[in-house]
Nucleic acid binder design. Structure first.
Lengths: 209, 209
DNA sequence: GAGAGCACTTGATTTGAATCAAAGTGCCCA
DNA sequence: TGGGCACTTTGATTCAAATCAAGTGCTCTC
């Protein structure tokens, strides 16, 4: 599907300048590489081809809030205004389909649907962070991620405990303790720290509210 | 501006059915009245004319998260999907301009901008709730509200301490204690519980991060 | 295969906000 | 004019999660 997967980001930039819209190129990003920063001009949007992306915001003292993770097939990078308010970075080795400004204008109808689901996700996440305890937050996170990976029983976490903590408004220690507790109750099982088997999906779902 | 301010909601519904789009009618709502509920079909959107509105979500055990407040001039009611995931209710005596489905289709470009700012607001709020302490949350709330009311030094709160608590992920007691503390430091002064003078705007802004 | 460097886990203690409880305060209406 | 009621404030105590502090285990390199 992505014939130009090995194409560099610089070439993608060039094509965009020449106003080609529909077809796009795929740019590779190493784990940890910044995709855009707060303050950068918004002139592209992205679709994850492989890998995973986090979008986050920082406070001056270093506190961080991850507002979203993006998995293969998902789009991100559109925001209100002309400059980014958030940072985006590749969590793992990632390939991104890059769309130019012209493409965004042509597809404003689809963009509306994406913006509305983005708003819904953020608002749902507000409920989780604002009104649920640590166990409920982690359970909701695992279920959400599982569904977005196709709903199977095995779950691969592309992100670290710190990323999860910054997404859920917790600390790594608390995330780790909750995972240990869920493992103790046999709700989940760990193959390794980043690979989770959901042993009792119903029990996990019951923990969300 | 709103010539038909006294028109009933039922008449507004009728006009919508007859496909009149651009001109709209204004419907009055008493304090506490529900505007729409979770599960309701999405077929209108609203602009606050006078008063104030809260949009919130409930957990089965009664915990509540207010995701947004809407003041005069602001629009709300558009969501992803075909049914509402949230409740909306008038906080005070409120008048709403009601727009029908046809109007929304015609103005999808403006709706995109609204959806993007809605997403940005929700994501900014995630940072506040996920990573800031009680004092920072209340300070951020007061500044946000103040700016949306025109940026003067006097601030009128249309909502109760409970509404504020449910918006900030706190309890009424904690909100009250923070307000008392800010009053003690002379950052703010209270004319009454719902009318606040911002005595030291810079000090308040400094508390946000 | 030894050792450095990370990510993750576990334990002890502290702490900020929740909870529980009891007053104020103001407002509506009889 | 005063009683009732909802909202707000204040105080005492508890508790969930943060912080502080070691470990453990894995991977990568030399």
């Amino acid at each position: 599907m992505y014939a130009a997967a090995q194409t560099s980001f610089q070439q993608a930039e060039h094509v965009e300048r020449t106003q080609i819209s529909g077809p796009y190129l795929v740019a590779p990003y190493q784990a940890g590489r910044e995709i855009y920063a707060e303050g950068d001009l918004i002139d592209k949007c992205y679709q994850v081809s492989t890998g995973a992306v986090s979008v986050y915001r920082l406070l001056p003292d270093g506190r961080r809030q991850v507002v979203s993770f993006h998995l293969p097939g998902e789009m991100f990078g559109f925001e209100a205004g002309s400059n980014h308010s958030f940072f985006a970075e590749a969590i793992t080795e990632t390939k991104l389909a890059v769309f130019g400004r012209r493409h965004m204008q042509e597809r404003s109808r689809e963009l509306l649907a994406l913006a509305l689901t983005g708003m819904a996700r953020a608002q749902q996440h507000l409920l989780v962070i604002g009104r649920q305890c640590a166990v409920e937050r982690v359970a909701a996170f695992l279920i959400d991620l599982c569904e977005r990976q196709g709903g199977g029983r095995q779950l691969r976490l592309p992100m670290s405990r710190q990323d999860i903590a910054d997404y859920l408004g917790l600390t790594t220690e608390t995330v780790s303790r909750v995972v240990t507790k869920l493992k103790g109750r046999s709700v989940i099982a760990l193959r390794d720290a980043r690979t989770i088997d959901i042993v009792k999906p119903d029990a996990l779902r019951a923990l969300c509210n």
